[in-house]
Design a protein around this nucleic acid. Structure first.
Lengths: 202, 202, 202, 202
DNA sequence: GATGAATGAGTTTTCATTCAT
DNA sequence: CATGAATGAAAACTCATTCAT
C-alpha cells in the first residue's frame, strides 16, 4: 500500500474474512461468552468442525478478530499521516478525521474492540493492548508537537490528547448512518470540537 | 435529599447491596454471560438458592444493578444542578464536574452500564435507556441554554453536548486512582477541555 | 354411619380437607413429581411451613390422600351392600351402581389413585394396595356367589369380576358431567353392560 | 405391509429405538416428571448430550414415544381388520383380539400412553389424542354395524363399544405373563366377556 | 472442508425441606 | 399458623471441543 494514497478514507461493505465478520456481529450483539461456537459457525456458513479447521479455538477467533480490527485502524492512521504535510495542524486534522471516519463506519468493530478486551487471554490481551497504545501514541505525538511549537494553546497536552481520542471513539456509541447530518458534515463539526479541546486555556 | 446539600460529591466505599456489588464486579471482569450465578452467589456470600431468594433471575440482577447505577448518577446530577446558581456557565461546570467525578470514582459502574446494555431484555433495556436519555437531556439543556444566550460560542450545541458527555464518560476508561494527578486536578483540567468543546468556533 | 342409610349415593362438592383437595387437583393435572410443595401450599391457601404443620412430607400428603380416597370408596361400597337384600343379583346391582357413581363423580380421585400408586413408598403402597384389593374382593365374592347359585351364567367368574371392575373404573376416563345422558341413565345402561359380562356364555 | 399378513399377532422382545424403550420403562416406573434426563440417558446407554443429539428435549422424547406406541397399535388394528372377513362378528372378534393382545404384551406402553397424556404440550397432546380417537372409531364402527344388522343385541351400541374398549385396555392393569392362564386362553375368555357386553339386553 | 455422533463440565433454575421469629 | 431467609441436591439443558468418516 503506497503512502498517502488516500485509501484510508474508503470503507467497503466487507473487509473481514467470513468467519471474523460473523464473529464480529455475534460478539457485538451478545458478547464473547454469550455467542456460541455453533452460532459463529452458522454465521460463517460453515459447519462446526469446518470452523475449527480455520481457528484452533473460540479464543483464537477473538484474538484474530481484534488483531485484524486494530491493525486495520493503525494502517489507516499511518496512511493518513503519510498523506498530508508536516505541520502539526495538518497532521492533527488528518489523524482526527481518520479516527472519526473509522468510528463512524466501523461502530461494531470499535465496540467489540473495547468491550471484549477483557475476554482475551492475558497473552493475547497484551498484544492487542500494544496495538491500541501505539494508536494513542500517534495522537499524543502530534498534540505534544503542536503544543510545543505553539500551534495548540492547551496547557495540558496529555489530557487533551486523551480527550480527543475519547471524543473520536465516542462517536461509535451514537452514530447512525441514517442520521440527519452527512458523514462529511459530522467530521467537519467534530473536527471543530477536537480543535476546541487542544486550544482551550485555563 | 435536600437540594444543594453537596452529597453528590461524596463517594463512600460501598453503596450497593451486597448482591449487586458482587454482580457489578463480576460483570465488569467477565461480562454478563461470562459470570455464572454460582460466582455471583459466592461474591455475595450467599448460597445459590439464597441468591434466588432475593432476585428472580440473573437477568433481574442485571436490571436491578443498572437501575441502581443510573438512578444514583441521575440523582447526583440533579443535586449538582440544584446546588448551584442559575447561570449556564455555573450549571455547566457543576454538571460536568458531577459527571467527571462519577466516572472517576465509579469506573466499573460506568463500564458495565454501557457494555451490558445489550444483555438486557428489550423491556428492561427500554427502562434503562430512558434513564440514560434523561441524563443526556440534562446536559443538552444546559448547553443549548448557554449557546442561546451567548455564554458558549460553539456553532453546534447538540454535537458539543454529546462531545462533552463522551469526554466525561471516557474518563472511566483510563482513570486510575494511583495516577500522578489528584482527582481535583483532573477535574479542573477536564473542565478546561470541556469548556473548549462548547467554546470552539468553525 | 348407620348401615344402609343410602349416603353412599350422595356426592357433595367438597369432602376432603383443603390440603388434600388441592393436592388431588395438582397431582391429577401434573402428577406427583410435577407438582411442587409450593404449589400444594398455594392451592391449600397455606404458607409452605404451614403446610408442613399438617403433613410431615410431600409423600405423607400423597399417602393421606390415597388413603382418604380409597377409604371413602370402600365405605360407600360396604354401605351399598348393607342397604340391599341378600340375593346376589341385588347385591351385584348395588355394588356396580356404587362403583359407577364413584367413578363418575370422583374422576380425579380415581385417576390419581391408580396413576400415582407408583409414587408411594413401598410401605405406603402396601397399605393402599390392601384397600384396593379389599374392594376387588367385595365384587369377587358377589360374582362368585352368583355364579355358584346359578344367578350368573358366566363360565369365568374371576375374569368376569375383574372385567366388571374394569368397566366401572373405566367410566372415570371418559365421563363428563355435561354429556348428553343423565348420570342415572348412564348408570342404568352400564348396569346392563355389566350384567352382560357376568351372563355371557362360551 | 401386506393386508392380512398376520404380523399384528407378533410381539418381539424389542421394537422401539433404544432411547424410547428406556424412556418407556422409566416413565412407567416413575412418571414423566419423576424420570430425569440423566436416567433416560443411562437407560439408553448414552451420555446426556448424546441423548440431546437425538431428541431436542425431554418433551420431544415423550411425544416420540407416545406417537410410536399409538401408531404401532393403530397399524396392528387395521391389519387385524384387513386379515378377516366382512361379517361384523368376525371383525369384532379380530379387533377385540388385537386390542387384548396389545394390552397383554405391551402393558407398559398402554399405561404410559394414558397416564402421561397430561404431560404432553397442548400441541403434542392434540396429535396423540387424535390417534387414540381414530382407534376408538374403528371399534365404534364395527359395533354400530353389528348392532344395525342385528348381529349384536345391545340397545346401547355407543356405550357398549366404549365398554369393550375399557375392558380391553383394563387388561393392561392386571395381566402378568406368569399368571396361571395362557395368553390364548385369556384372549378366549375375554372375548366371551366382550361378546357379553355387545349382546346384553335391558 | 461437511456430516453426524459423542462427551465432561458447565450452565440457569427449582426442588423439598428447615428454622428463627 | 404466617413470614422470610436459607440450603444441599438435583433438575433440564448447553457449552466448547473432538473424532471417525
Amino acid at each position: 500500500m503506497a503512502a498517502g494514497d488516500g485509501t484510508w478514507r474508503e470503507y467497503d461493505a466487507v473487509e473481514l474474512p467470513r468467519v471474523l465478520q460473523g464473529a464480529l456481529e455475534a460478539f457485538a450483539e451478545q458478547g464473547y461468552h454469550g455467542a456460541s461456537i455453533r452460532e459463529l459457525a452458522a454465521r460463517a456458513g460453515l459447519s462446526v468442525p469446518g470452523l475449527y479447521h480455520h481457528h484452533a479455538s473460540k479464543q483464537d477467533i477473538l484474538r484474530a478478530l481484534l488483531d485484524a480490527v486494530l491493525t486495520d485502524l493503525l494502517r489507516r492512521c499511518t496512511d493518513a499521516l503519510a498523506s498530508t504535510g508536516d505541520h502539526p495542524a495538518e497532521r492533527f486534522d488528518a489523524l482526527v478525521e481518520c479516527l472519526l471516519r473509522f468510528h463512524m463506519f466501523r461502530t461494531e468493530h470499535a465496540f467489540v474492540a473495547t468491550s471484549e478486551l477483557r475476554s482475551l487471554t492475558p497473552a493475547n490481551r497484551e498484544h492487542v493492548v500494544g496495538l491500541r497504545d501505539a494508536l494513542q501514541h500517534l495522537l499524543d505525538d502530534v498534540v505534544e508537537e503542536g503544543a510545543a511549537d505553539g500551534t495548540f494553546t492547551t496547557p495540558y497536552p496529555k489530557a487533551a490528547s486523551r480527550g480527543v481520542a475519547t471524543l473520536c471513539l465516542g462517536v461509535a456509541s451514537w452514530y447512525r448512518p441514517d442520521g440527519p447530518l452527512s458523514p462529511d458534515e459530522l467530521v467537519r463539526r467534530h473536527l471543530t470540537l477536537a480543535r476546541g479541546i487542544v486550544n482551550g486555556r485555563d
